Simulated assay, not measured.
Amino acid sequence: MMANAFPHSLPQLNSPPVRALAWSCFAPPLLNETTGIAAPDLPLTSQRREWLEQLDRNDRRLRDYLEQHCRSPRLGLVFESLWHFFLIEDPHTELLAHNLPVRQDGRTLGEFDVLYHDMLKGHTFHLELAVKFFLARHAGELPFREWLGPNSADRLDRKLERLLSHQLELSQTPAGQQALKTAGIVKCEPQLRVAGMLFYPEQQKAWSHGLNPDHPVGDWFHVGKFRQRSDEHWQWRLLEKPYWLDADYENARPLDERQLDRAEQRPVMLINKHLERCFVVPDDWPRD
């Protein structure tokens, strides 16, 4: 069931941060546009592919940007910073603002993730960004509420509801309009980019209406079942959370029984040399 989480449509890159950049900005999203909100129309053109390949040969510019602007290892903040770098560097886009707070009566209502201008279209966009790794509770056709985060508290339906009913509605509020005016923006159109991976239960297919059929995929296994696959253990390494975006196999830790013991308490992500990924979760997962 597992497929390369770094799609073949992307250039084969050696630099982990450049690979994270390509995956974050150009890998297929998790959702299609049945949400009613458009995704960014910024495809991987030959010009952008060449830009990535040049960065791969010398990634100092990207590394310096991340060191200066993103000192947190949190996946969501790294993901946003990679998008900021792309919009700054791309000759057809202008990053106008990011993480712009919306306040009313001294209270913060939210923030605009990204405000950028598309020079080819002549439009300004409010782009909300999210990167998520969800596991299907069971095989078959599922509602969004059955896609759970590794800790089983996060849910796809809740995340999407928050994005659609709160974050993307900020520009329609008086406080949001005032924040835009202060930033010199008169009008903007909403866009949504939800990237990440979906993991299927023990190599069984799961799907939901509204998912992009080309989304990056992996599998998940209860730790007891995974231990029975001992002939495959040597293929896998433990991928710590700061490296989930760049899928750096070389930086992952060789798998041993002590690390599998961790999976008896909480989910762990594994990666193999083909950049395929899987989760190994406690035998009583999900705990709800």
Rank of each mutant, 00 (worst) to 15 (best):
A183P: 01
Q54K: 02
S81L: 14
P267N: 10
C188Q: 07
L211S: 00
Q204G: 05
F221Y: 15
E257F: 13
P174Y: 01
K121V: 08
L30R: 10
W83Q: 06
H126Y: 04
R74F: 13
G149V: 08
L168I: 07
R48G: 06
P29S: 06
L109V: 00
R162W: 14
L62Q: 00
I37Y: 15
D246C: 07
L180C: 02
F221I: 06
S15F: 00
L82K: 00
E240G: 07
V281E: 06
G218N: 09
Q178K: 12
D90V: 12
F221Q: 05
A3G: 04
D283C: 11
H222M: 12
R229P: 01
F112S: 04
E161T: 15
P213V: 08
R74M: 11
A39Q: 13
R162E: 15
V217P: 08
Y65C: 01
P143M: 09
L52V: 04
M1I: 06
L275K: 09
L30M: 13
F279M: 08
L66E: 00
F134V: 09
F6W: 05
W207T: 05
V280E: 07
W244K: 14
G110K: 04
M1Y: 05
H8Y: 08
F79E: 02
F226Y: 15
L21R: 02
G218M: 09
S152N: 11
P101D: 12
A179G: 03
V78D: 09
Q47Y: 06
H92Q: 11
K187N: 14
F144G: 05
L168G: 08
E111S: 15
A252Q: 02
E50F: 10
H84L: 03
G149H: 08
D154S: 13
A263E: 06
P73H: 15
V131S: 03
L44Q: 10
F144E: 04
R145M: 05
R49N: 02
L109W: 07
Q47C: 04
D157G: 14
R137C: 09
W234G: 05
D256F: 07
K132N: 12
F144W: 14
D283M: 11
D283N: 15
A175C: 12
